[in-house]
Nucleic acid binder design. Structure first.
Lengths: 141, 141
DNA sequence: ATAATATTATTTGATATTAAAAATATTTTA
DNA sequence: TAAAATATTTTTAATATCAAATAATATTAT
């Protein structure tokens, strides 16, 4: 594979990633949530109710850290803990009404950004991008 | 533009972004640097010597935060401050030898990831991805 | 059934990181 | 030169993180 392609692509990917990052953090800054709280909200919104351990795994942090994050989300009424009969050690975490609304709201920002991107591309290119991302996501991430 | 395309693309973009994020943070965790230090190193490596203000802008944080980050990079001998005659308020920040090596090292990781992505795609798709990213980067980010 | 082991979540103590405000230093401009 | 603008540092308070210890509960082996 040509070095030129690798280098250029790496450079554009970095630019793209940095663009997404600063866009995301400006959205979060304008919200009621900290970065880690927002991340937790996304995970809960996307994957639904889950216990602390798998939440910690999805977030890539320890369960201790997750406990603190969930405490804060609970205090702000974005999430709740529920215990289950089958295993009294376990807490299932899920979004409250308010949490769901915040997740939807956040999602709208994502959709808006996606629309912006699409409008910079032809319809054919947009479809190609979708195909390409699906491949990369399923094979690498 | 079709809702289906927007939704799917948004979803894949989020997945892609999360994949990149956790990949990046695992690389950083295995290094001598914190996330913000690594970010600063990237900016300095990519854009070269600059003053605190423009560095803060590139990083998307305040100059106060940047001062602290540069302090740490300086202490670890990754970066240095240089003053200039023309304006004694100004410090120009640049990478040391060690900083340059770390930047190159970090860059190698990026190239490796890029190669992985390319190997999941056909040559045509890789070129298409480059074209698409260039468009998005120049028009949106 | 009991004892040993494993799992899940929380708490604690120590650092690291961050943003924002206040203080200081310097340059530019009127 | 005095005032305004700019750049930086310091300080403060909030947040984030981890590792280790603890508590509660489940599971497994004897």
């Amino acid at each position: 594979m040509s070095d030129r392609l690798i280098n250029e692509l790496s450079h554009e990917l970095l630019h793209f990633f940095n663009g997404l990052s600063s866009w995301e953090s400006s959205v979060v800054r304008n919200s009621d949530l900290s970065v880690s709280e927002a991340h937790a909200l996304e995970v809960l919104g996307q994957f639904g109710r889950m216990n602390m351990k798998s939440m910690a795994q999805k977030l890539g942090v320890t369960t201790g850290t997750t406990t603190v994050t969930v405490d804060r989300l609970e205090k702000k009424d974005y999430a709740r803990r529920e215990s289950i009969r089958e295993d009294r050690r376990v807490n299932l975490i899920s979004l409250t009404e308010k949490g769901c609304r915040a997740f939807d709201e956040h999602n709208k920002f994502h959709l808006t950004l996606t629309e912006q991107m699409i409008s910079a591309l032809s319809e054919e290119e947009s479809n190609r991008l979708l195909t390409i991302l699906k491949k990369i996501n399923s094979e690498i991430f």
